[in-house]
């Protein structure tokens, strides 16, 4: 029953949660600070940083919980993350003026070793492979 550790917290899930937790903490701290101190410099980029931060927090919490409902939340969050990194990455390349300040998803997360691009793909694959466990 409840003492059963959910699949999202076992095996590769350990690594996935570790990475998502760091991104959640890092992105949230940075976004809140940027919004509080220099919002007017690049409102779109900084609001987007906050959106990204919230998405990372939601995914981290959902993966830690690991119930069937939480898995659906995690999957939805990861899809938003993947769409976000693809759309923002493409816009930052084609229309750089839209994002005068970097976000975590600019250039497909190149400033973060492309982890923002690879992470959602691994996350979706992981959720799929642990389905029904």
């Amino acid at each position: 029953m409840s003492e059963q550790v959910p699949a999202t917290r076992r095996g590769p899930g350990r690594v996935l949660i570790a990475v998502y937790a760091v991104f959640a903490i890092g992105a949230t701290t940075r976004a809140l600070y940027q919004l509080a101190t220099r919002f007017e410099e690049a409102p779109v980029a900084y609001l987007l940083s906050l959106v990204a931060a919230v998405v990372y927090v939601v995914i981290t919490v959902a993966l830690v919980r690991g119930t069937p409902a939480a898995r659906r939340v995690a999957r939805a969050g990861i899809v938003v993350e993947l769409v976000g990194v693809l759309v923002v990455g493409t816009i930052s390349l084609l229309l750089p003026d839209y994002f005068p300040r970097a976000t975590v998803w600019s250039y497909y997360g190149l400033g973060y070793l492309l982890i923002p691009l690879v992470l959602p793909i691994l996350g979706l694959w992981f959720l799929r492979s642990t389905e029904g466990h």
Binding site: G13, R14, A18, V22
Partner: peptide
């Protein structure tokens, strides 16, 4: 492996 792997990535 996943325990030490998590520490490695972290």
């Amino acid at each position: 492996r996943w325990g030490s792997g998590a520490v490695a990535v972290a």
